[in-house]
Design a protein around this nucleic acid. Structure first.
Lengths: 229, 229
DNA sequence: TCAACAGTGACGATGCGTCAAAGTCG
DNA sequence: GCGACTTTGACGCATCGTCACTGTTG
């Protein structure tokens, strides 16, 4: 507890010493000290100086109520921070598995993150979070590989010259559909959003995700040609 | 994202629009927007604007390291808040069991809390916290009653005129010692602190704890008279 | 000409830390 | 007279929100 702090409390009228020496020094009485004790204690509970003034000066105030509100605020903050931690840990595990990460890669990933967020409504983000919890960690870990394999399979067909409308591709298209359903959980809004996202930003996102735009176009053509089947 | 925010980022040199219209309006190019995206994303991760500037402008910076440090800071904050919550919840359960609580009672309790804290070193506070975990919630719930009963027993003897040095009091003194040991866990520093606390502030603390100063004095005399046995 | 914007410039909030210059205590 | 302290007064921090007043756009 510094002198400056006492000056501050004096300035804002939170704790005025009941006397001053003739030379101007602040003299704190026993009751001043008692009040200071209370101020310090309330600070330790995390109250702002303004809240403390209210506590000390308004006669109509319910300690239990105030404490409950205060507790709720702190818990809300903790929830926000918990979310933050989860986000950062997700990023970290992503990067740590990828070995060394340059500043550029980092910023790219960051940029993509919020580009993606821009395509979903907050409700959809909520839905997707629940969805991730439903399908479980292992499945989520596996899906990037599943998509990579699927891409490879499509690439082979493409390079073999298979026509996008060839029924030969049906099993692959079904696998594709299964992966999409796994993600959307059948939610049409999410499906619409993710479709729009890949239509508009597909070329930007292909690289970082390890996909090939040509293969993606081929896949899209095949889907259009055979979506009725 | 408000206009004022963009002004601010411009003012502090975090994001300067690459062009201005002839009339002075800020014109943001695609790359400006990309940078803005990154800024917003980093903000969502909880970074300060200064940290963001470092991220965006220093070429020697390791994302993983920065994220790890950031995560650690947040987790430290959460730990502090967790402690805070525990403290407030403790107070609340104390008050809720006591029915309605006036502002005065609240402030009194608060004042006592930090008076008590003043008598222990931080290490001792740590020790006492571990101690509380060791002995468990139920025992802690019971001890106020145990002390109350013990006080009553001493009061009866006092009112019956029993001499403090009368060996009749030995069982009571042993119960007293057991309760003290339960609290201190045999730690001599803690014993010294709590003894000093009650010696110096006993009269202040007796009331709120429901004790009677006369009984306390009688107890102390009995302890002194028979402490050798 | 009018409404809806953007421009600059300024203060405000939070809880003191910190520096400066001058006075006081022992 | 000296060193350790106090006093008042002031700016600084972080991140914009929010006036106020003026200018631009469509």
């Amino acid at each position: 507890l510094t002198v400056r702090t006492l000056h501050h409390y004096d300035e804002i009228g939170l704790l005025k010493p009941s006397q001053h020496s003739e030379s101007g020094h602040r003299l704190y009485s026993q009751s001043d000290l008692a009040r200071l004790q209370q101020i310090v204690s309330l600070r330790q509970l995390g109250f702002s100086l303004e809240q403390i003034r209210d506590c000390l000066e308004r006669e109509d105030f319910s300690p239990v109520e105030v404490l409950q509100m205060h507790l709720k605020r702190i818990q809300e903050q903790m929830e926000i921070q918990r979310q933050l931690c989860l986000g950062i840990q997700g990023l970290l595990s992503h990067f740590e598995s990828a070995g060394t990460v340059s500043a550029d890669e980092f910023l790219h990933t960051i940029g993509m993150m919020n580009m993606i967020e821009n395509y979903y409504t907050p409700e959809q983000m909520e839905y997707l979070k629940k969805r991730r919890e439903e399908v479980g960690e292992e499945v989520i870990q596996r899906t990037p590989n599943d998509w990579a394999e699927l891409n490879e399979a499509f690439r082979l067909e493409m390079e073999a010259g298979t026509d996008p409308s060839d029924p030969k591709l049906l099993p692959l298209l079904q696998r594709r559909q299964a992966l999409i359903d796994l993600f959307t959980g059948g939610n049409e809004g999410v499906l619409a959003s993710v479709t729009r996202l890949w239509q508009e930003k597909g070329t930007e996102m292909a690289g970082p995700f390890g996909y090939d735009t040509k293969v993606m176009e081929y896949m899209a053509k095949a889907f259009e040609a055979q979506s009725g089947k």
